[in-house]
């Protein structure tokens, strides 16, 4: 049985339209304009136990809405959802033992108290007995390296430290499924990578099913094996992360380190992305030009100290997917 299954899920909201200007203010005061907005439009997917799935897409795509429906916070307008064998919004309390949630912008830790107090509270909420709690906490404390943070008031922690504690708080009751909504938002590069690695490792160890939403493609690449790309309430792509590049990229980045300071390079399907003395970065459209042909030509023009061939960053891949989707 799959951990999560979603069938024909739809969700729409009703929002008030604001009109500019004083007369607009007065007009909408007496007669507001309501507008229906579709956040999710008939989406279906299923996630197996232990799978790690990234939910990505631009702002307002419907990522958070989906996660809120799956964790029982929101009711859908239509469709069937099954999480850990339960219908989230109907069996919220039973579901709460099965899932953990991390909302990047909302804390479950008490601001003025040490993190340990919040953990104790959560242990009591989930009815963990003393021994189970103690061993679980020490296991997570080691894994997340928060021994020094346990007795420090949360308000004195950096955002990265706080987020590590937030994730520990969510893992405490060993949930079968963990939802992470923008877990790395606002963190610096090193804090981001720490969180990603820890989530990844712990989920492997516990066999946790992960569903995370993010703006940051790094989260998806480092933590997840599958990606669901959503835009305007619809699933655009549902594929393994590794396949995303090969199927959707028709570009390679070639960096040339030349022994001469400059060469003039012109070729169909090749763009010069960056140029500096002894260095040139080429953006190759592989549907028009073979990579080996490009390198041969470069070698014929000058001798090279070094040549590297890379895939474009994931950000660019997604951008091109959005563009094609819209076009």
């Amino acid at each position: 049985m799959s951990a999560i299954s979603v069938q024909n899920l739809s969700k729409s909201f009703r929002i008030k339209k604001q009109t500019p200007g004083f007369s607009g203010t007065l007009k909408s005061f007496f007669k507001p304009d309501w507008q229906d907005v579709t956040a999710l439009d008939n989406i279906s997917f299923s996630i197996e136990r232990g799978e790690r799935v990234a939910f990505i897409g631009p702002n307002g795509a419907g990522k958070s809405t989906t996660i809120k429906i799956l964790s029982g916070i929101l009711n859908p307008s239509q469709g069937e959802v099954n999480v850990a064998g339960l219908t989230p919004w109907e069996e919220r309390q039973r579901l709460s033992y099965e899932i953990g949630t991390v909302f990047g912008q909302r804390s479950q830790l008490w601001y003025h108290l040490p993190a340990r107090d919040s953990f104790t509270l959560l242990a009591s909420a989930y009815g963990l007995d003393k021994d189970t709690y103690a061993s679980r906490l020490s296991q997570l404390t080691d894994a997340f390296d928060i021994a020094d943070l346990l007795d420090k008031p949360v308000r004195q922690m950096s955002l990265g430290q706080r987020m590590r504690c937030e994730v520990v708080a969510s893992f405490l009751h060993k949930p079968a499924i963990l939802f992470l909504d923008e877990p790395t938002v606002g963190l610096d590069v090193s804090a981001k990578s720490v969180i990603r690695d820890l989530v990844y490792e712990t989920s492997i160890e516990d066999g946790t099913t992960i569903l995370l939403t993010s703006h940051d493609t790094g989260d998806m690449e480092r933590v997840c094996d599958r990606v669901i790309l959503i835009d305007e309430g619809q699933i655009v792509i549902d594929a393994p992360v590794s396949k995303l590049r090969s199927s959707y990229i028709s570009r390679k980045i070639i960096t040339l380190h030349m022994s001469v300071s400059d060469i003039s390079f012109e070729m169909q399907g090749v763009e010069i992305a960056e140029k500096a003395p002894h260095k040139m970065v080429l953006n190759v459209d592989t549907s028009q030009q073979n990579v080996s042909t490009v390198i041969e030509k470069a070698l014929s023009l000058a001798s090279m100290r070094d040549i590297s061939i890379e895939d474009p960053p994931m950000e660019d891949v997604l951008r091109s997917i959005y563009k094609n989707g819209q076009g």
Binding site: S71, L95, S96, T101, R106, A125, Y126, G127
Partner: peptide
Amino acid sequence: DEGSLDVYLTNPR
């Protein structure tokens, strides 16, 4: 307003 109820709604108590 702050959406704090989200956290409580996923709490068993």
